[in-house]
Design a protein around this nucleic acid. Structure first.
Lengths: 340, 340
DNA sequence: CTGTTAGCGCTTTCAG
DNA sequence: CTGAAAGCGCTAACAG
């Protein structure tokens, strides 16, 4: 059986023009903000359009101005709730600005340049990368094609791309400071093997600050992956190491939840009495009553705002110098740290 | 400061044609699977294209065949990990089939027809709705415009739309059966106020089956929302109700996690010894060692496969009768039910 | 198998 | 302020 025939011919601008008794140009102008049309004509056009159910064909429009409202979002680690929150917020923000987000899930394993190729074919007018994939090559390609790239929480690269970062430096600092102040003497850091850029900064700044605030340097334990299981694994190694410790910083909440469960199930130690824990990101699971995890909050709404803003600025001045926007973080105290 | 000048003129098919010494059509055909080109010509074209960095402009292509590879995904409840899993799987599947998913997060509160309008402007060739928003009106509109709609886990509507559902009926049945078999005498159901279509079926079939398997009918407790907090709330009401019970079915895992935490924190009762719990969906949190929730699994990969398949079928036969595909579910036993 | 010829639906100079 | 005309990049129908 071959394909049936059906599709009703969509209504075009000439249909509207005919009905309103004007030219196609008039119709076009009526739908172009800031074009010069007599208010009265425009009125007529809009009315005719409404009656016919006319919708501007953005594809055709994009073809002429060689710039679509499509924006690619390259995302990895969608199992991490924090990533999802970012993606959702960024999408919403884009839509609010009348863009359309194309979602490209891409794990580190996959070939990112292929993904970007798929986007470029659709003349996306920008690409937002939240994935951990080293995007060096692909960014270069976009830039050279005049497609702006915004990197979220990623290492800077050689090309002039805008970046939006949470203050990862401060994440480590705040955690170390808080734990020290709350009486911890021997700290530990839980992170993953092959940490991403953000995690690397968090861990480095934490370790540095521990050097400043505490007598003992912090121990470091790593899970294979940057997820719940990784947290479990690192924590379990820490516990069996027979080293003594009374404070832990996990570089992500996602790992911290695993660590917390491992403490709860694998030991008699009480949090926060014997052991205090701080995570990072403030995913919604932190406030679940089963966890009540103290953490360093990143405001994803602000982040999304900054990302889209960067994109818009880049549209209006393609050759402006690359910007790096660092957003503040704050310590949220819940029940895995002592209140004093 | 106005906008700088920069964008390099993108390379088009005529550039390639010139370089390869052929016509534009030859170029076009070389990039159209199944078009008739001499292998030798095609070779030359591909080579020239590669050297020039040519990429087919899909926007222009879509304009001619009046059908883009853009597919809208309307999604709500992205805080629920199960939803995210669906979205990710569907996106991946779409991309694998060379489509591009446009993500439209949309809460029930928002106006869905506006969202769809945004998609239609971009000539999406299909729309996938996983949101709980009653999509009746918008679906009608899409259909009448010849844009197929696939509903995921949603109530059927008057228009001829394809649907993909998990076997919600069986979710309730399996849960009731398992709990009864494992020795529960007095069951309870935890669900939310204003349950979505799926939840409604799950709860109804559960209640019916309890009538069949148990002496006592099941009690029903509802949280305000279909999320963790809703689970906490319903469970806490159940606990303070002073009614006795020894088995619970939560219509979603997301709620079950809240219920479980509430049991752990608000009572002395042990799961599964005193009380058995079964959830539904099998989100990844279920296998976290802090929960180890027994549940009814839905295979999101299969679901995504079915969704995209439905879409493809609809493309090839727009007028085929609407289909409803029901995917099997299975009981996954972890530690919140007794093994015997 | 290949080139030529017409558009797809819209915007945009350019005259009027 | 408005219409006519040209063209965005591509594909499809038709001859050759």
């Amino acid at each position: 059986m071959k394909s049936d025939e059906d599709k009703p011919r969509p209504v075009t601008s000439v249909d509207v023009a005919l009905k309103a008794g004007v030219s196609r140009s008039a119709v076009s102008r009526s739908f172009t903000p800031g074009a010069s049309v007599a208010p009265e004509t425009r009125e007529r056009v809009l009315k005719a359009a409404a009656e016919l159910g006319y919708r501007v064909n953005q594809l055709a429009r994009s073809l002429t101005n060689n710039r679509s409202a499509l924006v690619g979002i390259v995302a990895a680690n969608m199992d991490n709730p924090f990533r999802v929150e970012q993606i959702e917020q960024i999408s919403r923000r884009l839509i609010a600005q009348n863009f359309r987000p194309i979602l490209m899930p891409a794990e580190a394993a996959e070939d990112p340049s292929h993904v970007i190729g798929l986007l470029l074919e659709y003349s996306v007018s920008g690409v937002i990368v939240t994935s951990d994939t080293p995007p060096e090559a692909i960014c270069q390609e976009c830039i050279s094609l005049g497609v702006p790239v915004v990197l979220v929480n990623k290492r800077g690269i050689d090309a002039p791309v805008d970046r939006v970062l949470m203050d990862n430096e401060n994440c480590g600092r705040l955690a170390a400071e808080a734990l020290a102040q709350k009486g911890c003497r021997q700290l530990a850091l839980i992170t993953s093997e092959n940490p991403s850029y953000s995690l690397e900064i968090r861990q480095r700044s934490f370790l540095e600050m521990v050097g400043e605030f505490c007598q003992q340097p912090a121990m470091v334990f790593r899970g294979a992956f940057q997820n719940y299981e990784g947290g479990v694994q690192a924590m379990s190694e820490l516990l069996t190491s027979a080293r003594s410790f009374d404070g832990i910083f996990c570089v992500t909440d996602y790992m911290a939840l695993g660590a917390l469960d491992q403490i709860r199930l694998g030991t008699e130690r009480k949090v926060p009495e014997d052991l205090q824990v701080i995570g990072c990101d403030d995913i919604r699971q932190c406030s679940w009553q089963g966890y009540r995890l103290s953490t360093i909050r990143q405001d994803t709404a602000k982040l999304a705002e900054a990302v889209v803003e960067a994109l818009l600025n880049r549209f209006s001045s393609p050759n402006a110098p690359a910007t790096t926007r660092i957003l503040p973080v704050e310590l949220i105290e819940r029940s895995t740290t002592r209140s004093q």
